[in-house]
Amino acid sequence: MTDKSASRAPAKDLAPAPAPAVAASPGRSGEGTAWLLITPGVIWMTLFLVAPILMIVYVSFWTQTTFAINPTPTLDSWRDFFTSSTYLNSLWTTVRIWLIVLAATLLVGYPAALFIGIFVRSRNLSIALLIICVIPFWTSFLIRVLAWRPMLGREGAINILLQKFGITSAPIDVLLFSQLSVIIGMTQIYVVFMVGPIAFMLSRIDRNVLEAARDLGAGFGRIFTRIILPLSLPGVVVGSIFVSVMVLGEFATSAALSGRQVNLLGNIIVTQVGSLKWAFASVVGVVLTVIIGIVIAMLLRVVDLKREL
């Protein structure tokens, strides 16, 4: 231990670590006080988050009758899920839409983050640009979804513009109420969550390193693949976790923009609950939970976040 740290650090840095809980240090919140303070939060999350999720797992094994469920254990709902092509299709659709939207947010968002994080020299300007990108996050999610309808429809803004500039002769139907519209909508809504973390990681790169690499004759491609990309990877992972969690749990965008063409697992849950098929909805819920768990675990494999952040 260096001299400096030994005299001051015990008080500030070392103290919280293994200090034996001798009658919780008065004044300074000791371990007892800490537990007292954390208890309301822990109780809240246990009762209203953990218990409900366990309830979903439990109910997925209940018996479903036409309008009710009863706790007689059965695997019927699970069998129904894995034997119905509708539901397996929906599972596949969910995974497919997730992968496409994830790729789209990355492709669309990365260059924007690159410009904000690396190419803008003024720190104030780059913060301002980031704020401009984040502001829509604070407006109504459903309105943002809905706003795509007059954009993409047969008589929507995009079709009008395309025809006006003579790019197309007839309106394109496939823009709205299709898988494409769902993808466009989700990309626009969730791309912010990709741009933010990536821009943050990029802005932490020391500009001098980039200058030095350039002075040594490295082209941008080489600087990008050797320095920028690896250093931004934690941002990509964080952004991917945000986007994945949100897209996998989605149902509103597809409800609003797909015209019932795209049925995600979330949509199945909503319709099943609507027709009081609680046990079945629970099966879908458990499947969704498992998928999300796997996706997050995989993403965390890519980068050790604790070390990088």
Partner: peptide, 30 residues
């Protein structure tokens, strides 16, 4: 509470953060 490390703080941290990670459709259903 987290200003002082306490036993189980790691688990509690993830328990809290879980609230923003679990999709709303699951919390709502549960």
């Amino acid at each position: 509470a987290f200003r002082r490390r306490f036993r189980g703080s790691g688990v509690v941290f993830y328990l809290i953060v879980l609230g923003m990670m679990v999709p709303g459709v699951l919390t709502g259903l549960g």
